[in-house]
Computed example of a mutant assay.
Amino acid sequence: MLTLQRVSVGYGDAPTVLRDVSVTLRPGRVLALTGSSGAGKTTLLNAMAGLLPPRDGTVTVDGQPLRDRDHAVEHRIVLVPQDNGLAPILTAAENLQVALVAGGMAASEARQQTAALLDRLGLSGQADQLVEELSGGQQQRTAIARGLALRGGVLLADEVTSELDAGNRQRVLDLLHDEARRGAAVVFATHDPEVAAACEAELHLVEGRAEIVRD
């Protein structure tokens, strides 16, 4: 369970971006994180992922203060960043396999899992292409595949459907809901109202504050 209690966050000496945010990420639910560009969606995800310590308030995971990104990884908090975070000189398949093997999976099983996930995201034909050769939408789907492969207890996804057509956007949404049904807590940052409406709950950011729209 990941909980933020009256959290304020910002970068360096710059003004505070978000103030007094409280939310609990519930297993089995997809939470849409909405707000205009610059509202602080990525900032809040970074705080949830252990990349940005709060200036005030607390971020706890399973009752313990979240220390840093390594601590978050130990507690199976998976972040799919907006810039996808993929290694451009590796293929789509290699990006998944490296992450799975690093997590302790046998190489043969990692290959099988990789092939299955890329197929589910319509990327079987791109498995052996370098990431730098993929389109923006294909890179987004590869990043989602890697995030799903890690089977986190918390999955944080940052604007991962912005370059997808309607069919692939729905495919990603279906997979995120599958993760929630598996028992994960999913947070999906999006500026798309249709995507947000497809989620069970919504946290909206405006003028440095957060308000629950649906819960």
Results as ranks from 00 to 15, higher is better:
206 V>C: 15
132 E>N: 07
106 A>E: 03
180 A>E: 08
208 G>W: 11
106 A>D: 11
46 N>V: 03
90 L>T: 02
161 T>E: 15
141 R>P: 01
72 A>E: 06
214 R>W: 07
195 V>A: 15
184 A>T: 00
185 A>Y: 02
128 D>V: 02
15 P>N: 09
128 D>T: 08
213 V>P: 13
210 A>V: 14
46 N>R: 05
61 V>Q: 00
166 A>P: 06
147 G>V: 00
214 R>V: 08
17 V>M: 01
141 R>D: 01
110 A>K: 06
172 V>G: 07
193 P>M: 08
104 G>D: 10
167 G>M: 08
64 Q>K: 13
108 S>K: 15
115 A>C: 06
17 V>T: 03
83 D>F: 09
86 L>S: 06
109 E>P: 02
37 S>Q: 11
212 I>W: 15
78 V>E: 00
96 L>Q: 05
118 L>T: 00
164 L>I: 04
3 T>F: 10
23 V>Y: 15
211 E>T: 15
144 I>Q: 04
87 A>P: 11
36 S>M: 14
45 L>E: 00
37 S>V: 14
16 T>Y: 01
29 R>N: 05
2 L>A: 08
184 A>Y: 09
93 A>K: 05
107 A>T: 13
49 A>L: 06
166 A>S: 12
194 E>Q: 15
33 L>C: 06
212 I>C: 13
43 T>Y: 03
183 G>E: 14
208 G>T: 13
151 R>S: 08
96 L>P: 01
41 K>R: 13
162 S>T: 15
132 E>Y: 08
43 T>L: 04
67 R>V: 14
26 R>K: 13
12 G>I: 13
178 D>K: 10
11 Y>V: 05
12 G>M: 12
6 R>Y: 02
1 M>W: 09
214 R>S: 11
173 L>E: 10
75 H>A: 07
31 L>T: 15
191 H>D: 12
8 S>F: 04
171 R>K: 04
41 K>W: 01
49 A>C: 09
185 A>P: 08
164 L>H: 06
172 V>N: 13
63 G>N: 12
188 F>S: 03
49 A>Y: 03
83 D>T: 13
139 Q>D: 09
88 P>I: 08
77 I>T: 00
148 L>W: 07
55 R>T: 11
136 G>P: 11
16 T>N: 02
180 A>M: 01
99 A>G: 01
129 Q>A: 08
62 D>P: 14
56 D>N: 13
73 V>E: 11
90 L>Q: 07
130 L>F: 01
38 G>E: 10
33 L>Y: 11
55 R>E: 14
3 T>E: 15
84 N>M: 12
58 T>Y: 02
156 L>T: 00
118 L>R: 02
66 L>P: 08
99 A>T: 05
25 L>N: 10
182 R>M: 05
60 T>V: 07
169 R>D: 05
8 S>P: 07
47 A>Q: 01
60 T>G: 03
122 G>E: 07
68 D>P: 06
30 V>Q: 07
17 V>R: 03
116 A>D: 09
4 L>Y: 14
187 V>S: 04
162 S>K: 09
137 G>R: 02
17 V>F: 02
176 L>F: 15
168 N>L: 13
